[in-house]
Design a protein around this nucleic acid. Structure first.
Length: 267
DNA sequence: AGCGTAGCCGAGACGAGCAT
DNA sequence: ATGCTCGTCTCGGCTACGCT
């Protein structure tokens, strides 16, 4: 989904092919990447998409905007994406983009692991808000890895994470792998918009404990990853941390309780 | 409430670079 | 020479915001 390799700032190259290889006035690679990003995150704002697509491009801000817009226009012309209104701020900046049903189907045709439940005409408001938040977290990880220069980052979306751990006991929003000089860190990532009841968050913690106990993850992961919940404020992060600690300790013991970490994007 | 200003967005025009 | 792709510049429309 998103990759930063050590010593470089470019994302992994992906071959453009199939239906997206028809002649167009924009790079088919960017069209392909946009389709994949929208499939992975569910929806993105234009500025987020621009950040993903043009990580290392030495373009002026105006050119980046135009290039991104052309890519979106290309996909819109083909009926693969739709404009959606992101909840919260009633302004032009709150516009987002998501796949249409045709876009979902095209992507599903080239990624066998893509969940069929994702194929729907329009995303829900809750999904859109959550998608934008998750993209912010991914961009923060990406920027931190680029700034460090010696950190390799691999960001996998939810269905990629499920495929990796071989269980649906808990479905993380994303799975992130960080590598620096032989040191490896992995984490399940959960995006929290401070709209979730603590009881619902507690249930989520229980599902992770259940996943931990089921042992299926051991085939793919030598050690249990962190479970990192990223929320909107430090105060809410502290509250969630208390809930996670209490629930995980009660249901799974001290060892698993230590794996739960909560933070905010401000940190 | 009405007005002016700043900033953002989408779109079109244009030119540079490249392949044929 | 021609056509194509891509980056830059610019303009009109729109919204947010501050001031009166």
């Amino acid at each position: 989904m998103l990759r930063v390799t050590q010593g470089s700032s470019s994302d992994s190259a992906e071959d453009a092919s199939g239906d997206l290889n028809t002649p167009s006035r924009v790079s088919s690679l960017r069209v392909e990447r946009t389709l994949r990003l929208l499939a992975g995150f569910g929806a993105l704002r234009r500025d987020q998409l621009e950040s993903f697509l043009l990580t290392d491009a030495t373009l002026t801000s105006g050119s980046r905007r135009v290039v991104t817009h052309r890519t979106l226009g290309e996909l819109r012309e083909r009926g693969l994406i739709q404009e959606v209104a992101l909840p919260g701020r009633p302004s032009r900046a709150s516009r987002g983009y998501a796949l249409t049903e045709a876009g979902h189907r095209l992507y599903a045709a080239r990624d066998a692991a893509y969940p069929r439940r994702r194929i729907r005409p329009a995303p829900s408001v809750v999904l859109l808000d959550h998608a934008a938040a998750l993209a912010e977290i991914a961009i923060a990880f990406r920027d931190a890895a680029l700034a460090a220069r010696d950190i390799a980052l691999l960001w996998e979306c939810d269905w990629e994470a499920v495929a990796r751990i071989g269980s649906t006991a808990a479905i993380p929003d994303a799975f992130v792998t960080l590598e620096r000089g032989g040191w490896l860190a992995r984490a399940f990532v959960e995006a929290d918009r401070s709209t979730e009841w603590y009881s619902a968050f507690g249930n989520k913690v229980r599902r992770y404990v259940e996943l931990y106990r089921a042992d299926e993850w051991r085939a793919a992961l030598a050690t249990w990853p962190l479970v990192l919940t990223v929320t909107t404020s430090d105060a809410h992060a502290r509250s969630l941390a208390r809930v996670a600690e209490r629930v995980a300790r009660a249901e799974g013991g001290t060892r698993i309780a230590r794996a739960f970490r909560c933070t905010s994007l401000d940190e």
